[in-house]
């Protein structure tokens, strides 16, 4: 074997080992979700066992869990759609007219702790009797979906050649027409990527739902805590629930992996 090939083999082994270690918790989670309680309580842990779907049956038979899934979907879809609707025109304006100052606003939004918005929003929504409503959750999630959309879309719009727009304007197209008939179709892929990132950010958000949701509107990240409270941990069910919550996110994220870091730079209000 040539030294060149041996070198490459060494890097392959090291690279794959690191990758395996990083995704091992996911593998263990999925594996655990198929274990019976007996298998789960075995020590040393078993790697080969007769898989069972009981955990998933139990999670899905729980009506409230499906209800929380619906909540998560409604809130994430609403916050994403609203973010795109408000964010795309703003991003267009910022990309083409270069108003400065937006960078500072985006950076401030990135730095602000979520709790700084949550305390006043909680009091305001309490006054408006909106605590526990989808409206309060969707509105509050705009805090991260909107800056994320603006930030991502500025980049995508700047990549569209401006000559097309000029030609359209000369031909008598209105600005709104340019936005709808040129910018939106030409950045469709970017919009999809942005939408997915916003959806993930909203789906994963814990603190906002913890504060603003009630028993009826709470989302999955808060609901999953229910499996660990009280006296005992329902290990298998918890693993199944965790798999159920994270799997859609992981699949969506792999679709837009090129943009993930750019999205995280802008829009993760993590706490």
């Amino acid at each position: 074997m040539s030294p060149q090939r041996r070198r490459r083999l060494g890097f392959a082994v090291a690279g794959w080992t690191v990758t395996f270690l990083l995704i091992a918790p996911f593998l263990w989670m999925v594996l655990g979700s198929f274990k019976t309680t007996v298998d789960f309580l075995a020590f040393p842990p078993v790697f080969v066992f007769t898989p069972t779907l009981d955990n998933y049956r139990q999670v899905l038979a729980d009506n409230s869990f499906l209800h929380y899934t619906l909540n998560s979907t409604i809130v994430a879809t609403g916050a994403t759609a609203l973010g795109l609707l408000l964010g795309i025109p703003a991003a267009y304006a910022l990309a083409r007219w270069r108003r400065t100052g937006i960078g500072v606003v985006l950076l401030l939004a990135r730095m602000a702790p979520g709790i700084a918005f949550l305390i006043p929003l909680f009091v305001m929504f309490l006054e408006l009797q909106l605590v526990g409503s989808y409206v309060s959750l969707i509105a509050s999630h705009l805090i991260f979906t909107l800056p994320l959309t603006v930030w991502m879309m500025i980049g995508f719009i700047e990549a569209v050649p401006i000559e097309i727009e000029k030609a359209a304007l000369i031909d008598g197209c209105s600005l709104v027409g340019v936005l709808l008939r040129i910018i939106v179709p030409l950045t469709a892929q970017g919009i999809a990527a942005t939408g997915i990132l916003a959806f993930i950010a909203s789906w994963n958000n814990f603190l906002f739902a913890l504060v603003l949701a009630n028993e009826k509107t709470k989302t999955l990240p808060v609901a999953v805590l229910g499996y660990i409270g009280y006296n005992s941990i329902q290990w298998g069910t918890l693993m199944a629930a965790a798999t159920f919550i994270t799997l859609p996110v992981l699949v969506l994220a792999l679709c837009v992996q090129r943009y993930i870091v750019r999205g995280l730079v802008a829009g993760a209000v993590t706490g």
């Binding site: 995704i23 918790p25 990240p221 499996y227 994270t246 992981l250």
Partner: peptide, 14 residues
């Protein structure tokens, strides 16, 4: 990218 996009609350419990 997987660890950074997985729901932190769920992965914390895992």
């Amino acid at each position: 990218i997987l660890p950074m996009v997985a729901t932190p609350a769920a992965m914390g419990l895992v």
